[in-house]
Computed example of a mutant assay.
Amino acid sequence: MQFEHSAHLRAAHPDLVAGVVQATGITATADVRQRAAGHLARARERLAGGPESTFGEIQAWRRAYTAMGLRPTQYRCASEALLRRLRLDGELPRLHPLVDLCNAVSAAYAIPVAVLDLDRVDGDLTVRPAHGDEDYLTFAGDIEHPDPGEVTYVDAAGRAHARRWVNRQSGLSAVRADTSSVLIVAEALHADAERDVTGLVAALVADLTDGWGPPVASAVLTAATPRFTVRAAGVPGEEVAPATR
Score class of each variant (00 low, 15 high):
residue 80 E to F: 07
residue 68 M to F: 05
residue 52 E to I: 04
residue 90 G to D: 09
residue 152 T to K: 01
residue 59 Q to H: 05
residue 49 G to K: 07
residue 83 L to D: 09
residue 83 L to M: 08
residue 79 S to W: 06
residue 147 D to M: 13
residue 54 T to F: 01
residue 62 R to T: 00
residue 90 G to M: 12
residue 42 R to V: 15
residue 159 R to I: 13
residue 95 L to G: 00
residue 143 I to P: 02
residue 53 S to C: 04
residue 90 G to Q: 11
residue 142 D to R: 14
residue 99 V to G: 02
residue 46 R to E: 14
residue 41 A to H: 13
residue 39 H to K: 07
residue 60 A to W: 07
residue 109 Y to C: 03
residue 97 P to K: 10
residue 82 L to I: 05
residue 83 L to C: 08
residue 94 R to D: 13
residue 129 P to M: 11
residue 44 R to A: 14
residue 133 D to E: 13
residue 91 E to C: 02
residue 120 R to V: 00
residue 79 S to V: 07
residue 158 G to Q: 06
residue 147 D to H: 10
residue 64 A to H: 06
residue 57 E to I: 00
residue 95 L to S: 13
residue 134 E to I: 09
residue 80 E to H: 08
residue 75 Y to M: 07
residue 42 R to T: 15
residue 160 A to F: 02
residue 153 Y to C: 10
residue 93 P to K: 08
residue 64 A to E: 09
residue 104 A to G: 04
residue 126 T to F: 08
residue 69 G to V: 02
residue 64 A to K: 06
residue 65 Y to K: 10
residue 111 I to H: 05
residue 110 A to W: 05
residue 128 R to L: 12
residue 115 V to A: 08
residue 37 A to E: 15
residue 130 A to R: 05
residue 101 L to I: 08
residue 42 R to M: 12
residue 59 Q to S: 11
residue 118 L to F: 00
residue 135 D to N: 09
residue 99 V to Y: 03
residue 156 A to D: 15
residue 46 R to K: 14
residue 46 R to M: 12
residue 97 P to L: 10
residue 157 A to P: 11
residue 39 H to S: 13
residue 72 P to W: 01
residue 115 V to M: 05
residue 111 I to V: 15
residue 81 A to I: 04
residue 157 A to T: 12
residue 91 E to L: 06
residue 96 H to I: 01
residue 49 G to A: 12
residue 75 Y to R: 13
residue 136 Y to E: 03
residue 71 R to A: 14
residue 113 V to F: 01
residue 154 V to P: 03
residue 135 D to F: 12
residue 42 R to N: 10
residue 49 G to P: 10
residue 104 A to D: 04
residue 116 L to A: 11
residue 134 E to G: 05
residue 113 V to T: 11
residue 156 A to I: 10
residue 86 L to T: 01
residue 143 I to V: 15
residue 52 E to R: 12
residue 61 W to K: 02
residue 140 A to N: 10
residue 138 T to K: 03
residue 157 A to Q: 11
residue 98 L to M: 00
residue 52 E to D: 13
residue 125 L to Q: 08
residue 87 R to F: 12
residue 151 V to G: 05
residue 88 L to G: 00
residue 94 R to I: 00
residue 56 G to A: 15
residue 66 T to Q: 14
residue 43 A to D: 11
residue 38 G to E: 14
residue 121 V to H: 07
residue 127 V to E: 04
residue 100 D to A: 07
residue 140 A to D: 15
residue 79 S to E: 01
residue 144 E to T: 03
residue 118 L to I: 11
residue 48 A to N: 09
residue 113 V to P: 06
residue 69 G to D: 06
residue 109 Y to K: 00
